Structure formats: C-alpha cells, structure tokens
Simulated assay, not measured.
Amino acid sequence: MSRVERGRGAGRAMWGGGRRRVAVGVSAAGALALAAACAGGPPAGESVLRTLAATVSVSPSGDAGGAGEDGRIPDGVTLSPLDDRAAAVRNLDPALLAALREAAGAAKAQGIEMSVTSGWRGTGYQQRLLDRAVVTYGSLEQARRFVNTPEKSAHVSGKAVDVGPTSADYWLIQHGAAYGLCQVYGNEIWHFELRTTPGGTCPAMLPDAAG
C-alpha cells in the first residue's frame, strides 16, 4: 500500500559504506508536514504516506543509505530493486522480488528507471503508520483507505511493493501483467502485487486498501 510521494524524483542514491545510525523521533520537516495536513484537511494521493512516514520514529540501526531494518525508507532515499542491503527490498516475497526485478530490467531497456519507494514493512512500523493515519483522518475506517492494519497489510507479509517514479508506475500499469504484477487499488497507482500468472489478466482493482 501507500508510500507517500516518497522518493519519486529522478536520480539514484549514492550509498555510503557500512551501516549508520539514524535519529529516532519525529523530524521537524515531518512535524510541519503533519501539522499542515491537519490544518488544511487530510493529504491526498501519494503524499499521504510521505507525510505519515516522516513523523514515525525509525529503528536505531539502519541498512542501505539509512533505510531502516523495520522497512522504513527515509525521505530522499531511493532504493533499486536490486539493493539487497535494504530490508524493504530483501524481505520481499521471493516470487514478487523476482518479478519486480525482471520488470525493472525491461523498463530500463526502454529508458524507464524503476525504484522501490516502499516494500516489506515490519509489524511495528506498519502499526505506527496506521496510528498516525488515524490521527490525520480522524477514524480507523478512513485511515484504512490508505494504510492497512498489520494483520491485513500485504507490505507486512512482503507481498506488496510500491514503485516510483510516476513514469515507472504507468509503465507497470501497462506492462506489469506480463510479469504477473498488477495494480491493486484504484487510489494507488504505485502499489503492485503478484495477482496473475505472467502474461495473464489482472483482476479488477479494489477502490482502496479498505476494500
């Protein structure tokens, strides 16, 4: 499900050697973003998860480029589908990851760079995202349109991946079925799961994560 306008810019992240410590707590930018969202109404579209993720504390130890062992991908960090150093990538379901990498290779051959903007998420991180969404939207029912419970989230099971940038999303919407990858939710063009056999037909989309 969701990852909020996360790392949708062009360009690749340059990874430093070794692991590094990531600050725990709410960033100033994240706090301002959440305050602005609450003041002006709930954020719309992909900015939802970006706003929520910016306010959620990070696990003290990080992996590639500061990405957390809980699956969190910090704002500004871009992950390649090939980057096994990141928990968000390496903990994806093997079949999903293989399909994603095959699709990313085909997209690259056509000039489209594909990145993982959110992948596997730990249970605790998913719950914190949901808790923030409830605060932002005022109810669990509304929050679940964008962030599912840990028990129901395909991100927690490793069976969902959010892809960026937008050009890659549209490429996957058009070509993803050839690899078994399908857009699942009508309100999330970036969220893909294995929902068909390679070359098959994707099932009808759900309106949102709440079903």
Score class of each variant (00 low, 15 high):
residue 29 A to P: 00
residue 38 C to N: 09
residue 38 C to Y: 08
residue 8 R to S: 11
residue 34 L to N: 02
residue 55 T to I: 05
residue 18 G to N: 03
residue 20 R to Q: 11
residue 34 L to W: 02
residue 47 S to I: 02
residue 35 A to V: 09
residue 18 G to C: 04
residue 17 G to S: 14
residue 50 R to A: 15
residue 37 A to F: 01
residue 19 R to W: 00
residue 21 R to I: 07
residue 9 G to I: 07
residue 14 M to Q: 14
residue 30 G to Y: 00
residue 41 G to F: 02
residue 29 A to L: 12
residue 25 G to T: 09
residue 44 A to L: 14
residue 10 A to D: 11
residue 22 V to H: 03
residue 42 P to Q: 12
residue 36 A to G: 15
residue 42 P to E: 10
residue 49 L to A: 15
residue 40 G to Q: 12
residue 13 A to S: 15
residue 50 R to Q: 13
residue 33 A to I: 00
residue 10 A to N: 11
residue 30 G to C: 03
residue 9 G to A: 15
residue 19 R to P: 00
residue 15 W to L: 15
residue 11 G to D: 04
residue 52 L to W: 04
residue 16 G to F: 12
residue 19 R to H: 04
residue 29 A to W: 03
residue 14 M to T: 14
residue 46 E to R: 15
residue 11 G to P: 03
residue 34 L to A: 12
residue 21 R to E: 06
residue 47 S to N: 13
residue 25 G to K: 04
residue 35 A to I: 08
residue 47 S to R: 14
residue 26 V to N: 00
residue 22 V to C: 07
residue 48 V to N: 04
residue 17 G to H: 13
residue 38 C to V: 15
residue 20 R to E: 09
residue 49 L to S: 13
residue 43 P to I: 07
residue 50 R to P: 00
residue 23 A to E: 07
residue 22 V to P: 00
residue 14 M to L: 14
residue 19 R to G: 09
residue 17 G to V: 14
residue 41 G to R: 06
residue 49 L to P: 01
residue 56 V to N: 02
residue 13 A to V: 06
residue 20 R to V: 06
residue 35 A to C: 06
residue 22 V to L: 10
residue 18 G to P: 01
residue 55 T to F: 00
residue 16 G to W: 09
residue 46 E to Q: 15
residue 44 A to R: 15
residue 31 A to I: 02
residue 13 A to G: 11
residue 26 V to C: 04
residue 20 R to C: 03
residue 24 V to Y: 00
residue 19 R to K: 09
residue 16 G to S: 14
residue 13 A to Q: 05
residue 16 G to H: 10
residue 41 G to H: 05
residue 19 R to D: 04
